[in-house]
Design a protein around this nucleic acid. Structure first.
Lengths: 182, 182
DNA sequence: ACAAAAGGAGACAGATTTGTCTACAATTGC
DNA sequence: GCAATTGTAGACAAATCTGTCTCCTTTTGT
C-alpha cells in the first residue's frame, strides 16, 4: 500500500533532517514509523533510495512553501522582504511545514556525502537551481546581478542562522539589499 | 612522541574534510597514517577527541591563511577584494594550505553533528566568530552593517561554490559589496 | 650500553550497520 | 468466503565501527 510508503518517507525525512542522514539507521526509522523491515525493502531498493525519496519530498515541500511566501509580491523590494521574512519565520520555528529549523536539508546532506557525482549531490544542486528559478520568477525585471546577490545572501543567512543561532540575520539582509542598486 | 600525534591530526583532518567525519573510521586514519591503534588511543581519549583536535587544527590553519590574505589592505574596498579573491583561490584549489575545496569544514561538521550543545557544534560556532573578528580587525571604520553583510556573503559564497560548483560567485560578491553604501 | 618508554601489528569484544529470509497475521479483491 | 496480496515481527548474515589488550620491536634518555 502507498500509505506505508509515504509514512516511511515522512518519518525518514523528519529523522534525517533532525539528526543527519548518517546518524539515523534504517532500524530507527522502522521503530519510529512502526513499519516492518520487509515492507521498507519492498518499497525501496536500499537506504539510498529512501534518502533520495526524502530529499525529493523535502524539495517539493520547500518549493511549495517558498512559492506561497513570495506570491503577491510585485516589486523587487517586496520580493526581498517577503523572502527574508519567510526565512526568519523558518529560523524561529514558526513554519510548521518546514519543521524545527536545523539548517538547509540539502546543504547538510551535501556535507555528509562528499561524492559530487552521486545522486544525492546532484539532487542538492538541483534543489538550489529550482529555488533560484522560483525567486527569479517573482523578480519584476530581468536583473541577474540582483538575483545573484539575493541567492548568495539567502544561503549565507541560512548557514549563519544554523551555526550561530542568530535569527536577526534576515533583517540585515533586507537592509543590505534595499541599499543595493544595480 | 609528538610527531605521531601531529601526523594523526593531519591525516584525520585531510580525510575528514575530504570525506566527511562520519564516513571515515578510525581504522582508515590508521591505515593512511601508518600509525598503530594503540598509539592513537594513547594520544586521544576517543574519536571525538581526535575530531576536536582536527577542528582546532583546521581553525588555526584557516585563521592564519585569512590573516595573510587580508594583510596590507587599508581600505574597506581593499579588504573586500582581498577577501573574496582569496576565497576564489580557495574554491579553485589554488591555496595548497587549505587543501582541495570541499566547502567549509565547520559548516560540514555542523551538518553532521546535530546536537547544538556538543563540543563539536560549539567549536564550529566559535570558528565563525573568530573569522568575523579577523575581518572586523581589517575594516577601517567601525562599520557593523558592512561587516555583517560581508560575513553573510562569505558564508553564502562558500556554500554556493560547494554545492553548485560555480566559483565566479566571488566576483558577484565583490561587485555587490562595492555597490553597497551604508 | 641498557633500562624504560613508545610504537607496530593486529586479535578480539561488543555494538551497530544494511539487507535477506522465514513464519505468521491482517487485509483485500473477487 | 476464500485465495492472494500485503504487512508484522524479528532472527540472521555479513560487514563495519570504536575501543581494549597482548605480544613483540624500535627508539630514546642517561
Amino acid at each position: 500500500m502507498n500509505k506505508k510508503r509515504q509514512l516511511l518517507i515522512d518519518t525518514a525525512l523528519a529523522l534525517f533532517y533532525k539528526n543527519g542522514i548518517n546518524c539515523i539507521g534504517i532500524n530507527e526509522i522502522l521503530k519510529v514509523s512502526g513499519v516492518a523491515k520487509k515492507t521498507l525493502y519492498s518499497h525501496f531498493e536500499s537506504k539510498e533510495a529512501l534518502i533520495l525519496a526524502a530529499l525529493a519530498q523535502r524539495h517539493s515541500i520547500f518549493i511549495a512553501w517558498l512559492n506561497k511566501a513570495l506570491r503577491g509580491s510585485d516589486s523587487d523590494k517586496e520580493v526581498i522582504t517577503a523572502l527574508f521574512s519567510a526565512l526568519e519565520r523558518w529560523f524561529t520555528n514558526s513554519e510548521p511545514l518546514l519543521g524545527n529549523f536545523r539548517g538547509c536539508f540539502f546543504i547538510n546532506s551535501s556535507a555528509e556525502f562528499s561524492d559530487k557525482s552521486s545522486d544525492i549531490a546532484r539532487c542538492c544542486k538541483n534543489h538550489k537551481q529550482e529555488v533560484r528559478k522560483m525567486i527569479a520568477h517573482y523578480l519584476t525585471k530581468e536583473n541577474t546581478p540582483l538575483l545573484d546577490v539575493i541567492c548568495i545572501m539567502m544561503e549565507g543567512a541560512i548557514t549563519t542562522a544554523h551555526i550561530t543561532g542568530e535569527h536577526q540575520v534576515t533583517t540585515k539582509c533586507i537592509d543590505a539589499l534595499n541599499n543595493f542598486d544595480c
